[in-house]
Amino acid sequence: MNPITLIARKEAGELLMSGRGLAWLLALSVIMSVLSLLLVSNTELSLLDNAQVVYMVMGTVTALGALLAVVLGSDAVAGERERGSLMPLLLAPVTPSQIVFGKMGGQVAGWVVMYLLSLPYVWAVGSSGQNLTQAVAYLALFGTPVVLGFGFLGIALSARLRSVRSALLTSLITLMLLASPLLLGPSLRQSAIGKLFDAVNPFSAAVNSFDSVVIDSQPLAMQINRLAISLVWLVLTAVFAIRSVRKMEI
């Protein structure tokens, strides 16, 4: 079997078959359950409010997916180093590039699991409202590059910082900074700094697209710039991860 596939399967297996990975999934699903129950507890929601609920669930799924990705990414190399399994991995007949692509495969598997886990929630809160199909499609379209980008950033930091704790802390600080649009409404981001931040932040691109599509029913043509920002983020973090793993020292 291809070494990349082997490593990716091992990474995915650790998420789906290990007690630790399943406990993470359980925690994420409990968060989604509590959030859904809180968001829909108001039975007097108007049609627009329902779209707002779907938008908030989409943003939360993206943030939780990114959180899972940075945890997996931070553990990817530094975790192997701390468990003493990095040396055997490097001595195996695999190149550093194959290792990093295999780890990236594990990230993809993690996001696929998170996405599938979130679909029942999106369906439950949005089934009788507006733009549910678009919500499911755009969560995949924008959530994938944003979440995987955070995972690749975690892998890069994990290779450079050599300890899980340092990599995780740095990744989480970055995630909290970039995910701040979830907490700050659009009106709070109208200053010059806020607009500049929105213009380059992939997380802002994703949540602004969710808002634009689900609440305002705007077409894909209006999301092209935001999609480009998300894809640039994905490519930059992937390059950063590949270079970091290739350059890492034992």
Binding site: M32, S33, V34, S36, L37, V40, N42, T43, L45, S46, L47, D49, N50, V53, P120, Y121, W123, A124, V125, S127, S128, G129
Partner: peptide
Amino acid sequence: PVVDSGRILPVA
């Protein structure tokens, strides 16, 4: 009806 609690509770 924009919120179907019959769907949310089973999912949650």
